[in-house]
Structure formats: C-alpha cells, structure tokens
Write a protein that binds this DNA or RNA. Structure first.
Lengths: 216, 216
DNA sequence: GTCTATACAAAGATAGAC
DNA sequence: GTCTATCTTTGTATAGAC
C-alpha cells in the first residue's frame, strides 16, 4: 500500500495546470477554426487536429461542440469589459478625444476576435441563457455610452438612446469590416473618418462651439 | 393515337406556370428558413416542409441545396440595382436630400432580405464565381456613391474612397440591424439619425455653407 | 409530378485499449 | 490521459411506387 502511494505520487502529472493548458489550446484552436470555417464547417475533428490532440481527448475536456463555443463566448464577454470605461469617464476632454477613445477601444477589443462571435451566434445553437447574457452585455455598453454622451456639454443630439445604439454598433461593425478586409493596410484612415463622422454627428447641427464661422 | 392526344391535351396541367410557382414557393421558403436557422441548420427537409412539398419534389426543381442559395443570391443582386441611381444623379438638391435618398433606398432594398445573404456567404459554400459577382456588385455601389459625392458641391471630406465605403456599409448594416431587432417599432428614428450623421460627416468641419454662425 | 422509403456521407460522440 | 476504432445521428440526395 505505501509503495503504491509512492508510485502514484512519483508518476503524478501536474494535472491541474496541464489540463488547464490543454483546455486553453483547445479553445485557441477552436477560435481559429471557427473564424476560418464558420461554426458548422468548424468540425471538432479540425479543432482537435489544430490543437494537436486526438478527438477523444478533446471530449475529455468538453462535453460537446456547443460547450466549446459557449466557453469562447463567455470569455469574450468577460474580457470585453471596457478597459477604458473609468478612464473615459474621468477625462472631460474634447468631444473628439472622447470619440477617439471609443474608437480606439473598439479596435483594441477586436484584436483577438471581435464580433466574429456575434456572427457566430447567428448560425450556432446558442442557449437562450447565453444569448440573454450577450444581449445584456451589449445593452450595458450602449448604456455606458449613452451616459457619457449625456454628460458631455458639446453633445447636441436629442435622441440619446438611438444615438448611442447607432454609434456603438457603427463603430464596432466598421472596425470589424476593416479588419476582415484583406485590402486594409492600416487602421488609421478608418479611425480618422470614423472619429470625424461620429464627432460631427454628436455636435449636432451647430458649428463647432466657440468656433469662428468659416463662411464662404 | 388521336384519342391519346386528346387525353393528354385534356389532362395537361399548366406545366410552365405551375412549375414556376412551385419554384417560387421553394425559394421563398428557403429564404425564410435560412434567415431563421442559418445555412447549415436550414436543412432541405425544413425548406420542403415550409414550402408544403416533399423532399423528393424539392429535388425535382433544384439539383442540390447550394443551388437554392445561389439562385437566392443572384436574384438579390439583380433586384438590388439602384432603383434611384438615375434619379439621384439628376436631382442636384441639398446634400441632406441626397443622403436621405440613399438611406431610403437601403431601407427599401431590405424589405425582402438584406444582407442576411451577406452573412450567409460567410458560412455557405458559395462558388468563387458567384463570390466575385457579389464583390463586383458591392464595389459598383460604392463607386456610384463615390461619384455622387465627388460631384456634390457641399461635400467637404477629403478621402472620398474611404468615405464612400464607410457610408455605404454603415447605412446598409444599420438598416439591417434595426430591421432584425424585434424592438424596432418604426424606421423613422433610425432614418433621421442616420441621415443626420452621414450628412454632417460629409459636410466636413465647416458649418453649413452660407449659414450664419450659431456661436454661443 | 408528387410521394415515401432509403441509400450515402459527414460529423458528433463514445468505448475500450494502452 | 491519450489514442484508435466505431457507434449514432443527421442531413443530402436518389429510387421507385403511385
């Protein structure tokens, strides 16, 4: 018995950490495979292959394919909290600076899979529960922006709710498009135009506050 | 023989029209099924069921599932030619009027399936050929808008190419979002905000031309 | 022309050896 | 813990009766 214990001890692999590592590799592989092939064509076999393990091993870490996507989604949501939310709140700079921060934030958040996942939930069987979570998260972001707009003195639009939705969606989706487009060389051009569009929109019909009129 | 002919004549069903009608029903059903379930989960069985025919009959009208999507796509492209392209070109009204026409056009074109199809091609095995056609079509629309912008005196942005892409995509995608959102009651709010955003963007940093400065 | 029944293929998931 | 081999399910597509 004691000898048995010792053998077990000696042979024991670092279960927790190594298992966790394998889980990560599977998730990373899945993210890439889903991104490349879509959810349906992103088969578990392909995921296992890319992760460098067998299909059998994969199923030791996840009960089924949907669970992999679900995990991917919740992580994305958790990670997606606004890195700059507080920062933005505290810096009462120009309206343009605020907008630029929003755009930059969107670009940054798109580094490791943007709304690729948003597209995915349209074709994947996501649980009602998870869908609600995603929805809540989206609404939260819109709400944050709405509040930001409400507080800024230079904002001149009336319908803040519609404006916030419009802005969040437009910035996010345009960022995604540009990143997905192989022709895109740099993000500067888009960032500038996006900032310009949103800023001028938010200022309202009035010219720049305090600006000297450039009548021609 | 003559009697045979008469019987055939008497029994002859209106093949052309009826067959064409069935084809339409299949396509309509497919559009709805794809929209609801996505391409992968939008099975031929479901399509047949929704069309009110059997799976066997479906395959008498289309050689395979992909062909159904392909037909759907080409029709969308054909139908999608700008109804108002000439009209827009000929009416040198205000910039806002031009933008509003663009937005209205997008809304109208979204009645019977917008870029639901665009999303679909990301998960469906579309032929390279068809993909190119779609791409050409998109570029054409962007080019049209670019030219329209170039000609209008009130447009004050420098990077017309980026601006045209940004506008076309933003208008199209926001329209789609609003229509897909069950909370949406009417399209007026979005239309107005969209028009406001794009118009102010296009005017550039200058105040409205000839406008008296509203300095506060 | 339309149906039912079924062949065939592909992908998800499991069993059991090592 | 990981693998290979295999079962099961599901969806596309066809065959043949009516």
């Amino acid at each position: 018995m004691p000898s048995d214990d010792r053998r077990l001890q000696a042979r024991r692999k670092p279960r927790q950490v190594r298992a966790e590592l394998t889980r990560e590799r599977i998730l990373t592989a899945a993210a890439h495979v889903f991104a490349e092939h879509g959810y349906a064509a992103g088969t578990t076999n392909r995921i296992a292959e890319r992760a460098g393990i067998s299909i059998g091993s994969l199923y030791q870490y996840f009960p089924n394919k949907d669970a992999i996507l679900a995990e991917l989604l919740v992580r994305h949501i958790d990670r997606g909290r606004w890195t700059s939310a507080d920062q933005l709140d505290l810096s009462p700079g120009t309206l343009e600076a605020l907008v630029r921060a929003l755009v930059r934030d969107a670009i940054d958040n798109h580094r490791d899979d943007p709304q690729l996942l948003r597209i995915m939930i349209e074709q994947a069987p996501v649980s009602r529960d998870l869908l609600d979570t995603i929805d809540r998260h989206g609404k939260m972001r819109v709400g944050q922006v709405r509040d930001l707009l409400a507080r800024h003195p230079d904002v001149g639009v009336r319908d803040l709710d519609t404006a916030a939705e419009l802005i969040v969606f437009t910035v996010e989706t345009n960022t995604h498009r540009a990143m997905a487009d192989p022709r895109t060389t740099g993000m500067e051009a888009l960032e500038n135009e996006l900032v310009a569009m949103v800023t001028r929109y938010l200022r309202g019909d009035r010219p720049a506050p305090g600006g000297q009129a450039d009548v021609r």
